[in-house]
Design a protein around this nucleic acid. Structure first.
Lengths: 197, 197
DNA sequence: CTCCTTCTTGTCACTCGGTGCCACACTATA
DNA sequence: TATAGTGTGGCACCGAGTGACAAGAAGGAG
């Protein structure tokens, strides 16, 4: 069973993230010091860094776990499906999960307007992309170069859809934008499936 | 004429970059402090930051200027050419210029192995991409979304080619990899030119 | 319950990147 | 040569992050 230690650790961690996000949203990321967060949460600065390796990581609390099993979901897709369609489906699902999170819009705004967070986010997204590239390679029998390329294009499509969604004030349907992006960006090495006439 | 002040400033700046790159390459980026650089160059830490706003910027000295006129070069491409071909040509040229720089390989290795430099590089590349997206939109009459998407795909292709080149030990021809990448990644919204039979 | 081990915590001191401030020196110009 | 502008070093300072250490809380064994 999960011991009390680990339970309290999780609790403190998520409460810490809660408090920090609140401060970030109302004051800005750079304008909030770690001491502010620690003080508001009733712990010391030193302890903060025992829960999060860096100030930025608070923002991605929870988002991290979502990405870990994307490659798994990709592998669970039907083998008949082309890699582009699988990526499309899996990433749309992923994006949906992120959008459903609490404070999804504020978080995205925060990331979008804070350069260091943007960089961190893209880095994390690239790690996921790398895992997907492995999955694409082993499943589709493509060489590594093509697999990297396809996943990079998919990431580009996702990024553009996300940016556009954000630029339009988060009023439009994100999934629909993703569909459009994946339609427009489909790379030449992933031709659309022939309707076996 | 360029006054003495500006001339000495340029000289100090480039010599500073020289010394810093040398230290970075032999010791690593994170293992080299700004005090080390300043000491080796015979100036104070405070003055270092008068020449470069941040430690990372030293690495991109000179590379910055190359990117500034890419959008201009794009606009100088023949109007009959499709956006994908223009991007291909312009970015291949850009990459060639970077490759021809002194210490190109060491610099790339440094960037590739140092997360903070990687982030900075991608950020700079994204600024260029944004300018290109504007150029694509105004020239090709595409909507903003498609323009962003096409340039993002082009950036993805460039990235993959660059990564692959680096992974293969920098022995292969980079331009050839770029050509392959642009062939494989051509997005559906940029169909290849019909040879008007 | 008690003892002992283990984990957590706060505090302190420190490094490093980066900035504001100020006094000093140099340089261009009148 | 006097003077206004500009670059420089030194200093104090901030904020992120880390290492070390001592005190306290949690958990298990007797």
């Amino acid at each position: 069973m999960t011991g009390l230690r680990e339970r309290t650790r999780r609790a403190v961690r998520s409460q810490l993230a809660e408090v920090a996000m609140k401060l970030f949203i109302e004051r800005g990321f750079d304008e909030t010091t770690v001491d502010d967060i620690a003080g508001a949460a009733g712990i010391s600065k030193r302890s903060f860094f025992r829960y999060f390796p860096a100030k930025e990581d608070v923002v991605f609390e929870g988002v991290q776990a979502l990405g870990d099993d994307i490659a798994e979901e990709f592998r669970n897709r039907p083998a008949t499906e082309g890699p582009w369609e699988s990526l499309h489906a899996v990433l749309r699902e992923w994006n949906q999960e992120i959008e459903d999170e609490r404070r999804a819009l504020e978080r995205q705004r925060l990331i979008e307007t804070t350069p260091v967070l943007r960089a961190r986010f893209h880095h994390k997204r690239d790690e996921i992309r790398r895992q997907l590239a492995d999955a694409v390679r082993t499943r589709s029998g493509l060489d590594a170069f093509a697999a990297e390329l396809i996943t990079a294009c998919a990431a580009a499509a996702l990024d553009c859809a996300s940016d556009e969604w954000f630029r339009l004030g988060a009023k439009t349907d994100r999934a629909e934008l993703i569909d459009r992006a994946f339609g427009l960006a489909r790379p030449a090495c992933c031709p659309p499936a022939e309707p076996s006439s």
